[in-house]
Design a protein around this nucleic acid. Structure first.
Lengths: 177, 177
DNA sequence: TATGGATTGACAGTATACTTACAATATGGG
DNA sequence: CCCATATTGTAAGTATACTGTCAATCCATA
């Protein structure tokens, strides 16, 4: 008998199997993140930098004198956690933190000479890592996956607790030290 | 002048820009994982379960009497961290841990009545979360992305520090309590 | 200009996600 | 049977990745 109403069809409960986990996008994203970090850390082991620390260095290099809050928006990274990351980068003497003259709340971030050198030297390892992550796919599939992931991350930006705000990086230009 | 040798061409160093970060697969995977966890936690807030805790419950449901080491292989999750996850699930009375008679080292895991009920009730929320993660893509693109991610995770399995060993789950059947 | 609201960095708390190390226990080869 | 080797759960240490809260500071407006 065909349905005549618009009432939502109570879909029959799916069976609870491991396959339901293995084929869920959430599982695949968690797993791929695990793998990506493994590969990154392995390729960059000579530099003792994590993926997030690397992203922070790039952002500080690109936006010298940025403050922590804006940095968190630029790399889509939680402000609280970023405090620890900055602390570790500072203790490794890769960056410097100096108080701003105009705003006594903020501390401006700059690469040290050592930090700039590490960033320059690590680039080939980072690129090797990024290549390795997609290596198992055929070149055409790599492009497809990258395009779809870029789209999805962009369209889901607001769904994350720390949306990316790349344009925030420009604000500090008015108040540079 | 054309090159005559087979020596590797030292590719010119890429410029260091934020765009290099934003288009790197590693960044996209980290970002998508952030977003996926946000969506999962939001949809499942009524149940106070994280994605990993959910996966653990499913695995224990599917393989009653599994031990912690095998569970870690089945959900591709580090053995040490899993200890904490199990502890939290036990303190919420969703699972039970009882010593095995045959092997005094291992503790066998079972769902409690409450755990089985939570798992049954959370399924619709989990499915909603999984749908939302891919929602912004066209249906055909969702299928493509899922297929490529499945391939990539599978082919990169050994690159992770905790490879998935789904078949390990069967070993405990010989020594059930 | 005073004051309420916003911003900033810092801190505490929870939960992954990994590393190494260790004691208790199990197992297989001589 | 004995002993080297492996396995199991646990713990300590590091690093994300969030949630709150808080004091200091800034700023807009009444």
């Amino acid at each position: 008998m065909p349905r005549r109403t618009n009432k939502p069809m109570p879909s029959k409960p799916s069976p609870i199997t491991m396959d339901a986990v293995y084929t869920a996008p959430g599982y695949l994203f968690r797993r791929m993140q695990q793998i990506a970090v493994s590969i990154f850390v392995e390729e960059c082991s000579a530099f003792d930098l994590t993926p997030v620390q690397y992203a922070a260095l790039v952002a500080i290099h690109t936006h010298p004198g940025i403050d922590a809050t804006r940095l968190s928006a630029v790399i889509a990274f939680d402000r609280s956690t970023l405090g620890n990351v900055i602390e570790r980068l500072e203790s490794k003497a890769l960056i410097e933190r100096k108080p701003s003259r105009e705003d006594k709340r903020v501390k401006l971030l700059h690469l040290t000479k050592s930090g700039a050198a590490v960033l320059r030297d690590i680039m080939p390892s980072v690129e090797r890592a990024q290549l390795r992550m997609l290596q198992p796919l055929k070149p055409a599939d790599r492009k497809t996956l990258l395009a779809l992931m870029t789209q999805l991350v962009d369209l889901n930006n607001e769904a994350s607790r720390v949306p990316l705000r790349a344009e925030d990086a420009l604000e500090h230009l008015g108040k540079s030290s």
